[in-house]
Computed example of a mutant assay.
Amino acid sequence: MNIVLIAEDEILELEFLTILVQDMLLPEDKLVTCENGVQAIQLAKQYKPNIIFMDIMIPEMDGLSAIQEIRKFLPNSCITIMSAYSEFSYAQKAVSLKVFEYLLKPVKPNVLKEIFQTMLKSATSDYSLVEEKPKEMSIDTKEDRQFFIEESVKFINEHFKEKLTLETVASKVYVNPKYYSHMFKKEMGVPFTEYINQLRIKYACRLLEITNYQAYRISYECGFSDPSYFNRVFCAKMNMTPQTYRRVKGTPQNCPDF
């Protein structure tokens, strides 16, 4: 038996969800609904739902706060968040609460049906959301992809001088590394490694112009762990060695603008 709780204060959204969910439930299953966070906690305590749909911006107590309380007594419930807000902090908080999915409104009926079917299968097989690692969230729309890429690019631009791997950045936006690699190339027009190398070589050019650092030190300053690899990448990008660049291109305006 499945017990589904929907917390949504927009009447049309609640009606839409209710019709969709009821159409997929069995006669012995139960559906309960509410319009604010306080009611959501009360109903969760009363009915102990194994599946929850929660809007973020609901009255009296926001959805994330309500989930935080519900997790104290229902740690294994499958919870999907629905939100009109794509702020990265919301997504981060959602993952920390081990939500099943984070959906941006408006949600297409076919997408919601697919998500609900997956939640039903997970609930039936007694799937536990208490994992050592946060669940990687799916990213279905172009707007979602652009948002997550923008957030990851901000992180890359701030940390490219450090040891930075595809897996590290993908984990920051909670997506599968292989999918993130494909998504990054599609949105940015260049592969992940190529983008980081562009940033590092541009910074290397700047250091060659304004410092007397040896090439091996510049390679480390730019985030390369291997000076030989740095030299190969630099030569491939600039068609000259770092030493030659310093000798003949030692003015800031000659630094490449990738």
Rank of each mutant, 00 (worst) to 15 (best):
L43D: 00
V32I: 15
S65V: 00
D62I: 05
I56C: 07
S65H: 08
C34N: 11
G63K: 05
P27W: 09
Q42A: 14
N50Q: 12
M54V: 08
N36Q: 05
I52S: 09
G63H: 08
T33W: 02
A40C: 10
V32F: 11
A44P: 02
M57G: 05
E35F: 03
L31C: 09
Q39K: 13
N36E: 06
M61C: 02
D55C: 13
L43W: 00
V32L: 11
A44I: 02
D29P: 02
A66Y: 00
L31W: 13
E28P: 01
M54K: 05
Y47A: 06
P27Y: 05
I58Q: 00
Q46C: 07
Q42E: 15
I56M: 11
N36D: 15
P27V: 08
K48V: 07
D62M: 04
T33Q: 11
K30M: 06
E28T: 13
G37K: 09
I52F: 08
N36H: 11
M54F: 08
T33R: 09
K45P: 00
A66H: 02
D29V: 07
A66L: 04
E60K: 15
L64H: 06
D55V: 14
L31Y: 10
P27Q: 09
I58Y: 05
I51S: 04
A44K: 01
I52D: 06
L64A: 08
N50Y: 03
K48M: 12
I58M: 14
D62K: 05
K45Q: 15
N50G: 03
K45W: 07
D55H: 14
L43V: 02
F53G: 01
M57D: 14
K48C: 11
E35W: 03
I51M: 11
Q42K: 13
I52C: 08
M61D: 01
I41Y: 01
I51K: 07
L64Q: 04
G37E: 03
I51P: 02
A66N: 06
I56H: 10
Q39R: 13
A66I: 02
I58A: 04
L43Q: 01
Y47F: 15
K30G: 00
V38A: 06
M57L: 14
L43H: 01
K48D: 06
Y47C: 07
A44G: 11
Q46D: 12
V32S: 11
N50S: 12
C34I: 12
F53M: 10
D29K: 06
P59M: 14
P49S: 13
Q42D: 14
Q46N: 13
C34Y: 08
D62N: 15
S65N: 12
I52R: 05
E60H: 13
K48P: 01
P49N: 14
E35C: 07
I52N: 03
K48S: 13
S65Q: 13
M57R: 15
Y47P: 00
I41Q: 00
S65C: 05
